[in-house]
Simulated scan of single mutants.
Amino acid sequence: MSETSVAPARAWQSVLEHVESRLLAGELSPGDHLPGERALSAGLGVGRSSVREALRVLEAMGLIRTATGSGPNAGAIIIATPGGAMSALMRLQVAARGFPVADIVRTRLVLEAQVVSDLAEASPAADLVIAESLLDAMDAPSLSPAEFLALDAQFHLALAEASGNQVITATMAGLRGGIESYVLDGLDRIADWGATCSRLRHEHRGVVAAITAADVSLARSRIRHHISGYYAETLPDSH
């Protein structure tokens, strides 16, 4: 590979590394402006095209917001909203089948056990209105299996959001497509959907009841049983 083919990549990466080092050193914080293109280009010894490429990457990562014009809101400003970018990155990996289903399930077991623990320990009690409204919606007898499972995925995400842990919520949102994919793929391997649907409803209510009762151990046990039970029931070689 020629030197000219790798130089542009190294140039814009050096801008990213510069911003990262200033963040780690506490020299940049949310709300601060980055220096302008010309200043970054001169200060780092890279072309302005490389600076623009780095800024596009930083914006896609959810680290900066850019605006044209003049005034206090113009230019590149450090922001603290990584959740959307993190979720988008994970969704792309899921869409590209970069994560094995077994790994998604194991990750759910870890994350959701922590979610229900946090909810059960919350003081004052966590707001579960959205999660409970989704459970009520899942009681509708007219739902198709796909509609029920879509609401099921929303319920699990609603619990994560109620916990207030932004990292877990972003991760769960990013994994949602992968979760919906494997639960839908397993439908054909369910011998009696009516019985499974009834069991899932009961398990959901049991998780919420344990959270409401502030029983951390029971909430963790029930969510793990719920997640692993469906996965075991719908494994390709389980029938």
Rank of each mutant, 00 (worst) to 15 (best):
Ala74Glu: 08
Gly164Asn: 05
Glu121Cys: 12
Gly71Thr: 02
Gln166Glu: 15
Pro100Asn: 07
Ala140Phe: 02
Pro124His: 15
Phe155His: 14
Ile77Thr: 06
Pro82Met: 10
Arg91Ile: 03
Arg65Phe: 02
Leu157Val: 08
Ser50Met: 05
Leu157Gly: 05
Pro72Met: 03
Arg56Asn: 13
Gly83Trp: 05
Thr171Gly: 08
Ala54Asn: 10
Thr171Arg: 09
Val116Thr: 10
Phe155Tyr: 13
Thr66Asp: 01
Ser70Glu: 12
Thr171Gln: 10
Gln114Met: 09
Ala76Lys: 00
Asn165Ile: 07
Ala96Asp: 09
Gln114Cys: 01
Phe99Ser: 05
Ser133Gly: 13
Ala102Val: 13
Val51Glu: 07
Pro141Trp: 04
Gly75Ala: 06
Asn73Lys: 15
Met138Ser: 02
Ala160Phe: 01
Leu55Arg: 11
Leu151Tyr: 08
Val94Met: 05
Thr68Val: 07
Ala60Gly: 07
Ser50His: 04
Pro141Met: 06
Asp103Lys: 05
Gln93Trp: 10
Phe148Gln: 01
Ser123Asn: 14
Ala150His: 08
Val51Asn: 03
Glu53Ser: 14
Ala131Val: 06
Ala170Met: 01
Leu157Phe: 12
Thr66Cys: 09
Ala122Lys: 13
Ala102Gly: 10
Val116Ala: 08
Met90Glu: 02
Gly83Ala: 04
Val167Glu: 11
Pro124Lys: 15
Gln93Asp: 15
Ala126Val: 03
Gly69Ser: 04
Leu134Ala: 08
Ser163Gln: 04
Ala96Tyr: 06
Leu128Trp: 07
Pro124Trp: 15
Ala125Asp: 12
Ala146Asp: 14
Ala95Pro: 03
Glu121Phe: 10
Met138Phe: 04
Ile130Glu: 15
Thr66Glu: 10
Ser123Gly: 09
Ile77Met: 04
Glu161Val: 08
Gln114Asp: 09
Leu111Tyr: 10
Ala95Ile: 08
Gln114Ala: 07
Ala153Val: 12
Arg106Met: 11
Ser49Met: 15
Ala126Pro: 07
Glu121Thr: 15
Ser50Val: 01
Ala67His: 13
Ser163Val: 03
Ile130Ala: 15
Asp127Trp: 00
Pro82Asp: 08
Ile104Phe: 07
Leu128His: 08
Asn165Ala: 09
Arg108Ala: 01
Gln93Glu: 15
Gly75Asp: 05
Ser163His: 03
Ala60Val: 03
Ala126Tyr: 02
Gln154Tyr: 01
Ala76Arg: 00
Ile130Ser: 11
Met86Cys: 11
Asn73Tyr: 14
Leu58Met: 14
